[in-house]
């Protein structure tokens, strides 16, 4: 049922086109895998005090962002305001989440001897 919607039309979702199936599955999996890689490298860089790992962490985030955009395109998310908002939410949320969780880790472990060292290193 391939039909391009005009901009006036408001539908809740526009189903994925057959040709984009693989792209959707692959990019969705990439979103999660890059997200984990980003979180992993980010945390690793901080916990071991290796700033050189940080660019790699952000490279992983770029991979995540690219995957989100590809997914958004393939799943027709940019055709509606609501789903575009979800895409933006993912982009911002996944960028910020590891930072926030890291701060929580440091904050909650304050008082533990090793954790103090980490917070001082930073």
């Amino acid at each position: 049922m391939r039909r391009t919607l005009t901009s006036q039309e408001r539908v809740v979702i526009e189903p994925v086109h057959l040709a984009d199936f693989f792209t959707v599955f692959f990019s969705a999996a990439s979103v999660i895998l890059f997200g984990a890689l980003y979180a992993l490298l980010f945390a690793w860089s901080r916990v071991r005090g290796r700033p050189r790992l940080m660019p790699m962490a952000y490279a992983a985030y770029l991979g995540l962002a690219a995957s989100v955009i590809v997914l958004g395109n393939a799943a027709n998310l940019f055709n509606s305001h609501y789903w575009t908002f979800i895409v933006l939410l993912m982009l911002v949320g996944y960028l910020v989440a590891p930072h926030a969780i890291w701060h929580l880790c440091v904050g909650t472990h304050v008082g533990e001897d090793e954790a103090v060292k980490v917070s001082q290193q930073r």
């Binding site: 809740v12 979702i13 526009e14 189903p15 994925v16 199936f21 959707v24 599955f25 969705a28 999996a29 979103v31 999660i32 799943a75 027709n76 998310l77």
Partner: peptide
């Protein structure tokens, strides 16, 4: 996540 969005 691979198949959770309603579009797919």
């Amino acid at each position: 996540f691979m198949h959770t969005l309603p579009q797919i």
